[in-house]
Simulated assay, not measured.
Amino acid sequence: MTLTAPRTLTLLPAALLLTAGLQGAGAQVAPANWNGAALSSATFVILDPQIQGNPNAVSAQQRQGVLEAMKRDSAGAIKRRYPNAVIATDPAAPGAVQVKPVLVTPSVLAPWNKLTAQLEFRMPAGNNVILKQDFGVLTLWQKQSEAANYMYDVLAQRLP
Rank of each mutant, 00 (worst) to 15 (best):
T2A: 13
T2N: 14
T4A: 07
A5P: 09
A5Q: 12
L9I: 09
L11C: 05
L11S: 01
P13M: 00
A14V: 03
L16Q: 04
L16S: 00
L18H: 01
L18P: 07
T19P: 05
T19M: 11
L22C: 12
Q23S: 14
G24N: 12
G24A: 15
G26E: 13
Q28W: 06
V29K: 08
A30R: 14
N33P: 07
N35I: 06
G36D: 15
A37Q: 12
L39M: 03
S40M: 01
A42S: 08
T43P: 01
F44W: 02
F44H: 04
I46W: 00
D48A: 12
D48N: 06
P49R: 02
Q50E: 10
I51D: 15
G53S: 04
N54K: 07
N54S: 07
P55L: 09
A57K: 02
V58P: 15
V58I: 13
Q62Y: 07
R63H: 09
M70H: 04
K71C: 03
G76A: 15
A77R: 02
A77N: 03
A77K: 03
I78L: 15
K79Q: 09
K79Y: 00
R80S: 13
R80G: 10
R80I: 03
Y82R: 02
Y82E: 09
P83A: 03
P83V: 10
N84K: 15
N84S: 14
N84R: 14
V86S: 05
I87L: 05
D90M: 02
D90N: 14
P91L: 00
P91C: 02
A93H: 13
A93R: 09
P94C: 03
Q98C: 06
Q98P: 05
K100V: 12
K100Y: 00
P101T: 00
V102P: 01
P106L: 06
V108I: 12
L109R: 01
L109K: 01
A110K: 13
P111M: 08
P111F: 08
N113Q: 12
N113G: 05
K114D: 15
K114T: 14
A117L: 13
A117M: 08
L119I: 09
E120T: 15
R122P: 12
P124Y: 05
P124E: 07
A125Y: 01
A125T: 08
G126F: 06
G126T: 05
I130F: 10
L131Y: 14
K132H: 13
D134S: 04
G136Q: 00
G136P: 03
K143H: 11
K143D: 14
K143C: 11
S145H: 15
S145V: 12
A147L: 07
A147S: 07
A147Q: 03
A148W: 04
M151G: 14
Y152R: 15
D153W: 07
A156T: 06
Q157K: 05
R158A: 14
R158N: 14
R158L: 14
L159C: 12
